[in-house]
Nucleic acid binder design. Structure first.
Lengths: 215, 215
DNA sequence: ACCTGAACACCGTTCAAGT
DNA sequence: ACCTGAACACCGTTCAAGT
């Protein structure tokens, strides 16, 4: 009795994230992670509930690396921007984990902490209840949606190794049916993902400003 | 030579989507789909390139059901709203396909068609180039991000069978650390997912209005 | 309390063979 | 051109046993 666990949660997180970073989210498995830790598959069941838990482990590892500071004196928009940008950057640091994050964010306690911080900042604008809920969900959608687009969007800029390939595919589309798509593919090539994300976020913030008591 | 294919693409799409709808996205496999079609696993390789293609099949099936009408006379905002809502509704019709959609949207030609329609509508506001790109990505992020939140967000309203469970989990969080989260969980219970989505979209549209030539 | 190997019911895909 | 079964190298997890 009372034997100390063989692996810390941190150790599991690091090993699982390393596998995803190196081989992609599809390469993570009980057996592969166990092998990376130098043990048998069944040993992992002493630390996680099952396969699904492995994904959550990775999501939590990625999101818990997001850092932001409280800025009670600054404008609430600046605070929202900082938290959202920290979240987006943390996700972007681990592009191969994005499919997992999109899909399991909910189970991660680190995601809950980010949500609470975002809500606190948004609440400083004065909105409450349903309006606060909508504002929060819109900002969260912005973070996750832009991260998803960066993953492999039809306009994916740099970063991803197959971005050039995706761009080529868009450019080879029938120009009569996809005129606008082709047109902005060029704009995407000269644009940075972070600028685009901040641009989208600022649209949202401008909308919050413009609709202060609506809905 | 010239033997007609045993299964049409439509037939494959329908069967694959039915499996996902009934058993969830994790239940889709070459062998299960083959069995549903009354054939052996290897036969599928005459119709799809491999496992990954199955997911794309499902995504395309879901997104191609989105319908919208051109409204050249109406306000461009109304047109954007209609297309985005059609996309969001199509996704919502098949909640168990959402993980696939979030993850494979890019490979779907139906998604490209929706993107082009959205771009055409947004372009009517007068924006071009980088600004059009950002507006487009923000709207797309809104559709996908809200759909993701509906899937299992910490505030998931109705629809998903485990929504009550998620709500209960949020409500049982330590109230000192998650005050705002708990506060809006109540608001989420009385709100409809579609209202929330439209609210978020309108924030974005208001922002486009307010920042007509910025960035 | 925690660790672990054997075994089972899956999975995608290569290969070789059939029409 | 299209169909298909056998076989291979995986996978998650149950069970029973060990300390």
């Amino acid at each position: 009795m009372g034997r100390p666990p063989k692996f810390s949660r941190q150790r599991l997180q690091d090993a699982a994230l390393a596998i995803v970073d190196e081989k992609g989210s599809g390469a993570l498995s009980m057996r592969v992670l166990a092998a990376a830790l130098g043990t048998g598959p069944m040993t992992l069941y002493n630390h996680v509930a099952g396969r699904e838990d492995l994904d959550v482990l990775v999501v939590d590892a990625v999101l818990s690396r997001a850092r932001w500071s409280r800025q009670p004196d600054a404008d609430w928009r600046a605070e929202v921007r900082e938290i959202a940008l920290a979240g987006w950057r943390a996700v972007r640091e681990h592009p191969r984990a994005i499919p997992l994050i999109l899909t399991r964010r909910t189970r991660s306690t680190a995601a809950l902490e980010m949500a609470e911080a975002l809500l606190a900042a948004l609440a400083r604008s004065g909105c409450r209840g349903r309006r606060l809920l909508v504002a929060f969900r819109a900002v969260m959608a912005c973070i996750m949606g832009f991260a998803q687009g960066d993953l492999a969007g039809p306009l994916a800029a740099a970063a991803s190794e197959n971005a050039a390939e995706v761009l080529a595919r868009v450019l080879s589309l029938p120009p009569d049916r996809f005129a606008h798509l082709i047109e902005i593919a060029a704009a995407a090539r000269d644009s940075s993902a972070e600028e685009e994300f901040l641009g989208g976020l600022d649209l949202l913030l401008a909308g919050l400003e413009a609709q202060p008591a609506a809905s």
